[in-house]
Design a protein around this nucleic acid. Structure first.
Lengths: 222, 222
DNA sequence: ACAAAAGTGTTAAATGTACACCCATGC
DNA sequence: GCATGGGTGTACATTTAACACTTTTGT
């Protein structure tokens, strides 16, 4: 038995899919599931390990952030490891689309909403919960919400994301006013036909503008 | 050379002392300084290691929270480790007092303000900076500010802490109104004579009340 | 013409911000 | 009696929250 503490890296990938915020989980041999995870290489920076682990699950995210390091002692085991967790946001692919790399392989990684989540190994259920809480917390004072959208989106889609993550309804007019006043989106000039009803204008996120105002808290508080 | 990644734990202890927010630093053999830190034991939970490391520096804190895990590759070394950092708040001992366990041993750990800080090993300067930022961020939506005060304090002392950490002056009347309205302090009925001028009423923090309102953000935003 | 989603302003309430004087004590 | 820090209330500006109807499209 090794007397060394092993360092592992786990990534919570979140995306919006089918009207729910879902996490990517990898099936294990024993029927349970786990976050994409792996052992930290000796010459590997932590964030590089997180990227590697994401790729090994067939996913990619532009937004990656360290979440928390879990170091509970396993109930009874001759192994000891700590798990450095990350959370990552994957853009959804529009109203009815799949998440970016989400053509699910049968028996491979799959996306799960909070309620439908199977049982997870170790601390992983807690890690997923921590990621959801972190996302909710950051929603109001950063632009993380935009990381869940494709490059071009409608304001209704943006509002849906806020409503989903915050778990409450928002007033359409107040929401749009705030977004306009901040000047963090620009119209593409294009429109997109909805399933039914009037077509919606498409917008693009203006990262430059956001960086300038990022200092002040509660920019996007609803 | 070991091919194992070693896990280390480092703690940023912060306190208010002499009108400044100071961090506890331990002198090294080579004249530089470091955070209190040590290697994680095989059977030791992370938070236990943080406590142990604090004690070995002769300090104690009621408030301890994980900060961030640093895993940079050292520029050239056959060793590799990651460092799980914690931040801790030590109550000051009143207006002119020393921090709780702060009778400094010559050549031992000592408290340093941001400007007076000597050069630190590895990432430690960044870790201290991260702790200061985290403290500032949490000040407005948690009661961490109270963790820097002794059990009994004056409202002026409380306000000083907020001003110090936020780096700006606050209006006395508005500050007190907010504290009163929240009902998170209760008068002890005692007073304390100031160096000069009218004696100040003493208050105690009401943790119970705070927990009830903790849900809402920006409770203590100034 | 109707069903469905997009888009648009105004008002009231709550919150935050600015501001100046009296009070109790020690010297 | 004066210098020092403790203590208090009011008015204005800003922000947030609630609310309903018109527009454009596809069928």
């Amino acid at each position: 038995v090794s007397r060394h503490v092993e360092v592992r890296v786990a990534v919570v990938l979140l995306t919006i899919h089918g009207g729910a915020l879902k996490a990517l989980l990898v099936p294990q041999r024993d029927g349970s599931y786990a976050l994409p995870s792996g052992t930290l290489g000796f010459d590997e920076p932590l964030s590089a390990a997180a990227e590697r682990v994401m790729q090994s699950a067939g996913a990619h995210a532009d937004y990656l952030e360290q979440l928390y390091t879990f170091g509970n002692l396993p109930p009874s085991s001759s192994e000891r490891f700590i798990e450095v967790s990350y959370f990552a946001l994957v853009p959804s692919a529009g109203p009815a689309g799949m998440p970016a790399d989400g053509r699910p392989v049968p028996g491979g990684p799959a996306w799960f909403a909070e309620g439908e989540q199977p049982s997870l190994i170790l601390d992983h259920a807690n890690i997923v919960k921590a990621a959801r809480i972190r996302l909710r917390g950051k929603l109001s004072y950063t632009a993380v919400g935009f990381e869940l959208l494709p490059e071009v989106f409608t304001l209704a889609e943006l509002q849906n994301i806020y409503e989903l993550i915050l778990g409450k309804q928002l007033d359409k007019r107040n929401f749009r006013r705030k977004i306009y006043e901040l000047g963090i989106v620009e119209p593409t000039g294009e429109e997109r036909a909805s399933f039914r009803g009037r077509p919606a204008s498409l917008y693009r996120f203006k990262a430059e503008v956001f960086e300038q105002i990022e200092a002040k808290r509660d920019i996007l508080a609803f």
